[in-house]
Structures are given as C-alpha cells and as structure tokens.
Design a protein around this nucleic acid. Structure first.
Lengths: 203, 203
DNA sequence: CTTTTTGAACTGACTGGTCAGTCCAAAAAC
DNA sequence: GTTTTTGGACTGACCAGTCAGTTCAAAAAG
C-alpha cells in the first residue's frame, strides 16, 4: 500500500526541492514564502506541509541532499585519479574541476550554501556543521595522503589548507557565474590550477 | 547643514550600523526586524526612520561604509609594502594579512557581505556590484603591477586569480572564526602564504 | 467483471500572529 | 528657535501553519 506507491511522493518532494533551491538562493530563506515555493512547484500549499514538517525542515533536507551530491562527486574524482595511477596533486586538481562542474550544474544550491554556512543562531546550524565537515573532510583526506606519500610539503596545515582550497574554488566559481559568465570552465580551472601548483609567484 | 554640525546624528547612525550589522549577520536581512535594531542600538524606532528612509537604505549604507573600510585597509597594506621597497608578492602577502585582520575585527560585516554578494534579484544588487568591484580591483592592480615587473608569471589570468585570492582569504577567515577559533592569526596567514608561494605541492 | 472500501496524497480557504512603516505631541539637545 | 530624539499607538499587508474536505488508484468483497 505505501510500499512502492511512494514514487509519487518522491516526485513531489523533488519538485519542491527544485522550486525551493532557486527561490531561496535568490531571495534568502526568510524572504521566500511557502506560497511561492508551492506555486513554483505547481502544488498546493498543503502539500508542502504534507511532505515536510515545516519550512525549515524542507530547507534542511535540501541541504543534506545537495551536499550529498557534492561530496560524492568530489570523492569520485579523487578515487578515479588515484585508481588511474595519478598523483595526489593530480587528484586535488581533479577535485577542483569536479567542484567547478558541480557549481556550474547547481549554481543555486552553492549560492544558498555559502550564504547560510557562517550564520550563527539558526535552527539548522547543526545540520550545516555536519554537512560542511563532510565536504572539507574529503579534501583533508587527499591532503593527508599526499603528505604521507611525500608529494606534498610536510609544512602544510591540513585543516586550514583544506578550508582555503574549498574557499578558493567556491568563491572563484560563484564569481565566474555571477560576474564573468563568458569565461569557460577550462579558463577558471586553469587559473585555479596554476595557483595550486604555485606558478603564480613565478618559481 | 549636514556637513559638519551633525556630530550627534552621526553618532546615532553609527550606533544603528553597529546594531544592524551583527543582527543581520546572525539572522539575515529579512529575519531582522527594525524594532530589534532600534532596541539593540538603544534608540527609539522613530529615530531609525528619522535617520534612514527605510530598512533597505540603512542596509545599503552599511554595505558602503564597511567595504570602504576594507578597501582602504587593503590599499594601505599594498602601498606600505611597495613604498618600503617590498616586492609585489610581498604586497600580496601583506594584503592577505590585512584582509584577515579586517575580518578578525569585523567578523559580522564579512559574514553579511558574503551572504548577500551572490544573490540576484535584490534591491541592493547594484550597490553590491560596485562595492565588490572596488575590492577586487585593488588586488587586480597589484597582480598587474607584479606581472609588469616580472615578479609574477605572465601566464596568470588576472581577474580570475584576483577573485580566487579574495575567495581564499574570505572563506579561510570565516572558517577560522567559525570552526577553528583557537588558531592564531599567524597560523592562518602562514597557511595562506604557503599556498600563495606555491609551496603546497612541494616544489 | 462490478461494486465497494480504503487511505495516501493533495487541496485551498482560513486563522492568528508579525512587522515595516506612519504619525505626532512633547521633551531634550544644541 | 532649530534639530534631533522619544515613545508608543496604529494600520494594512503579508505569511507560516492548520484542517476539513476531495481525489483516485488499487485492494477487497461480492
């Protein structure tokens, strides 16, 4: 009875995610009304509350869902590189590209994530903390392996460097989308890669 | 009329900026009420509207005010370095430190700036665009000078690299404040400096 | 087959509360 | 005497969340 028929429910949920993510990215969480979300999803307001306990819960599940996709794609990129005999630095490079690709595909999600990440005093603070840790941890692992393998300098501070790398990609990508959309993904990847390889300050 | 005499008015405005910046950083623009701002500033609600046309106007002036401080401090750092006979790379390093210091001193402002920067469809979008360009331009100038002086590789893509550097500092600093506050400013500066100098991927 | 029943999914009008912005007379401040 | 601030009552729009009722596909009964 409820076993398989939840295909329908799943479809509604997905429509709601898609509607919510763009609206919240554009306007922010508080400025986005549940009526708007329902309307854009082509669904009655009641349906939102049938599927989610509250507006915040919808948002939190959206976050979990999105970050799940991101970490999967980062991890995938790193694994593929290493499995294919690549170095850790190459793996980092591949992750940068995977990050850019993700942001290119889901710009609204990224926008919303960045906008909410550093807010304190919010109901979903704990969700965000977990979700951020998951993403940064993927990068930290590769850095740690790289140092262990002697490919990366032992001087580096792993948590700080991981955060900086994530930030570099995040901000560069958002800036690309918002202010320099005519540039190609390869341009952006090239610029970041150069920085990673230390060829900016002309060694 | 408004030029010199309004010391009193200026003081009230400043109190309002200070109250608004933390509240909006914590909760977001829409979730913050004018009553809250007035209360935290220790001022009557009527005073808010005597001093600003609307809630959004208060916010926009806050943005202009804050970014003014930031660019001044970045420019200062670069000038001092170059005037003191330093290289452009040293100037970039000094700017990273100045950026970190600024964020350390005004964490709420930075938070709020990042949260709003990439939103589309907002009233203050144009204000933000101008204000972002100002900040990135300071970094671009130093990069351009560095390339001209042969200190930086000619390969680099100036606008993209500038955006990436700004992003790296912004995100690393916010992460530091939010998730690793026990680290010192020198730690964070060191990690970013290493990345800038290309000593991460062990050359 | 046909009819009846079931219940998950959905609907949209409604409610209770919130909040930006207004108004203004009187008190401070300068 | 002019500018600025106070305080707090008021309005009208807007919005999260509720709930009584509808829909319909598929299961059960006949």
């Amino acid at each position: 009875m409820e076993t398989r028929s939840s295909t329908r429910r799943q479809a509604t949920r997905t429509k709601l995610y898609e509607a919510a993510v763009t609206l919240i990215a554009e306007q922010g969480f508080s400025a986005t009304t549940v009526d708007e979300i329902a309307e854009r999803a082509g669904v009655a307001k009641g349906t939102v509350y049938y599927n989610f306990k509250s507006k915040s819960e919808l948002f939190e599940e959206l976050l979990r869902h999105g970050v799940g996709l991101l970490t999967a794609s980062l991890r995938q990129a790193a694994e593929d590189t290493v499995a294919g005999g690549g170095t850790r630095v190459e793996a980092l490079d591949a992750m940068i590209r995977a990050g850019l690709l993700f942001i290119h595909r889901y710009p609204a999600f990224t926008q919303l994530y960045v906008a909410e990440l550093w807010r304190t005093n919010r109901a979903w603070q704990s969700t965000l903390l977990v979700v951020r840790q998951e993403a940064v941890a993927v990068v930290e692992t590769v850095l740690r392996d790289g140092v262990a393998a002697g490919e990366l300098s032992e001087e580096i501070d792993i948590p700080l460097t991981a955060a900086a790398l994530v930030g570099m990609v995040l901000v560069a990508a958002l800036d690309w989308q918002a202010f320099q959309p005519q540039r190609s993904l390869d341009d952006v990847h090239g610029a970041l890669s150069l920085l990673l390889h230390g060829r900016v300050s002309g060694h």
